[in-house]
Simulated assay, not measured.
Amino acid sequence: MELMPQVLLAAVQAAGERYEDETTEQYSTRVLQNGLAIMAMMSPSSWVGKALLDMETTKGVFVGEIVDVEFLDNSKRYQFTFKSTRGSKFSADKLDRIKTDRIDDSYGPLVRKMVKQFKVGDVVRVWKKMEEAGETSDGMRHSSILYMERLR
């Protein structure tokens, strides 16, 4: 397995130094638990693994200024409105409106942190993911925010 050295290194780093009264077997067990947890999170069947895979494969990256943040009660999502530095080819007013994931699913804590971290006026780089048509309630493809970083 190609990832094994990186996973082992991460597992050892997460375990930290061996305790004074800890046997080699006890320390190895802590490292193993960390390694298994890391591998489980990397799996495409885990929400962490899926998000990391989405991040790795997304082509939807742009820079824009946040001009509005609104909570959509009916869908339990936030909608960020961006004034893109390149303009929007999808809307007449040149604004991109992109929703977050739902706040009541596994991404909820990440979404709430994002809403607290970013404010109107922030210029950010946005990674967005496209949801497949079969994953949406209306059968249409929608984009959602995967990750944002503040540029200024």
Results as ranks from 00 to 15, higher is better:
E132R: 11
K76Y: 10
T57F: 07
D73I: 06
V111P: 02
G87I: 05
T58Y: 06
Q117N: 14
M4C: 10
M140N: 14
W47A: 02
G16E: 06
E20N: 13
E135Y: 08
N74S: 15
G35R: 07
E2A: 09
S46C: 00
A10R: 15
V31Q: 13
M148W: 07
D68E: 11
G108V: 02
Q6T: 12
E149P: 09
E135K: 11
L146Y: 00
G35T: 07
R112H: 06
A92S: 12
V124S: 15
T24W: 10
I103Y: 07
K99I: 05
G121D: 01
L36I: 14
I66V: 09
D138T: 13
E135I: 04
M1R: 14
K99D: 04
V111D: 03
E56S: 13
S143L: 00
M39R: 08
S91T: 13
G121E: 04
K89L: 06
Q117G: 06
K119Q: 06
S28G: 08
T23Y: 09
M114N: 04
N34T: 07
E135V: 05
G87L: 01
S28V: 12
E131F: 06
D68W: 00
K83C: 01
L146M: 13
G134M: 12
R141L: 03
K94I: 00
S46D: 05
V69C: 00
E56I: 04
M114A: 11
T23D: 13
P5V: 15
G64T: 10
L52P: 03
T85A: 07
Q117D: 14
L52T: 05
R141M: 12
Q13P: 04
L8Y: 14
D105G: 01
D68R: 10
K113Y: 08
W127E: 07
R112P: 03
Y147D: 07
G108D: 07
K76D: 11
D101M: 13
I145P: 09
Y107N: 03
E135W: 07
D122I: 04
S143E: 08
K83T: 00
A51H: 03
V12W: 08
S106E: 06
G16T: 05
M140A: 14
W127R: 03
K76R: 09
D93I: 13
F118A: 06
V123T: 12
D73A: 14
F62G: 01
S75N: 10
F71R: 12
M39V: 15
S43N: 11
G49V: 05
V7H: 11
Q33R: 11
V61C: 12
L36T: 04
T81H: 05
H142G: 03
Q6M: 15
M4N: 15
K119S: 06
G49D: 02
D101H: 12
S91G: 02
R141Q: 15
S88W: 13
T57V: 10
F118S: 04
D96M: 07
F71Q: 07
M39C: 08
L151A: 07
R102W: 00
T85Q: 09
V126C: 10
G49C: 10
R152S: 11
D54E: 14
T29S: 09
N74W: 09
T23K: 15
G35E: 08
S143C: 09
A133E: 12
E20R: 15
V69A: 00
V115N: 01
D54T: 00
A51N: 04
A10W: 12
P44R: 12
L3M: 12
K59Y: 02
V48T: 02
L53S: 09
A37I: 01
